[in-house]
């Protein structure tokens, strides 16, 4: 069985973090989360990291792997060479709690402001009409609130109050299918110097998103919607 070398960022707030190297034996079919969990189970019980689902659905295990935002649970070890080093660091632009752990509550509170979207149609119905009897079908929104896009976003680095790609994408999603929601409030939320206009289309969010959300395009659509709304109000002689 191959031995993998992991270099993990370690430390606690208040002291400067350091990189520490661990060796862990696992088959090439295993994932990065298995390696980190094994280090915790067998080598160092003080290691802090977040995880729950191990299949890219809870959004808990986001980190930076060799500088790139990834979910540990779908990062296969076979991508790396046992001779090389896999460097794992916490996400950026979140309060750091120690080791690989960050506090995601600022993002979750922003998402809460938007509300909760469920997709009414499922994947298969996109190309086929639903037979009678299961029109109630719904499925989870794609965004798993992992925060990878926030960590990768250069605007986030410059503006702490920026709503961020995930939240803007969520607003766009709600506006596309409001189901009685308060669209005026959402438009106001997005139409803000720290909202949709702050994005400068670096596209990093879409590049790192593990869940097909494509926040960059969503922000583009949101801006167009905001412009259309403005024109409508202006033509209608509104405020």
């Amino acid at each position: 069985m191959p031995t993998w070398q992991l270099r993990l960022l370690r430390g606690r707030p208040g002291s400067s973090p350091r990189l520490e190297t661990y060796r862990v034996e696992l088959p090439a079919e295993a994932y990065l989360i298995d390696a980190v969990e094994k280090i915790w189970a067998e080598q160092d019980r003080s290691l802090l990291f977040r995880h729950a689902c191990h299949h890219a659905s809870c959004g808990a295990c986001g980190v930076r792997v060799n500088g790139r935002e990834r979910l540990m649970c779908i990062t296969p070890l076979r991508e790396f060479s046992p001779d090389g080093v896999i460097q794992v660091e916490p996400l950026r632009h979140f309060p750091w709690l120690g080791d690989l752990l960050v506090d995601v509550s600022p993002m979750m509170r922003r998402m809460a402001e938007v509300g909760f979207a469920i997709i009414r149609r499922d994947e298969l119905t996109a190309d086929r009409p639903l037979p009678e009897g299961i029109e109630q079908i719904t499925r989870f929104e794609d965004c798993i609130e992992c925060g990878l896009c926030l960590s990768a976003c250069p605007v986030m680095a410059a503006d702490e109050a920026y709503l961020g790609p995930a939240t803007l994408a969520a607003i766009e999603r709600m506006l596309a299918e409001p189901r009685g929601g308060d669209t005026a409030r959402l438009l106001t939320l997005a139409d803000d110097p720290h909202g949709a206009w702050r994005c400068h289309s670096a596209m990093e969010c879409t590049a790192v998103c593990p869940s097909n959300v494509d926040p960059a395009s969503a922000i583009g659509r949101l801006r167009r919607r905001l412009i259309v709304e403005k024109l409508r109000r202006w033509i209608g002689g509104g405020r």
Binding site: S57, D122, E123, L124, I134, R139, I144, S211, N212
Partner: peptide
């Protein structure tokens, strides 16, 4: 995501007899 509904095997519970769809997986 291959299935809309949860697909179960009609038999006594055994190994590998349920496919659960979740989001696009």
């Amino acid at each position: 995501r291959w299935n809309r509904m949860v697909i179960n095997r009609l038999n006594m519970p055994g190994d590998g007899d349920i496919i659960v769809p979740q989001r696009r997986t």
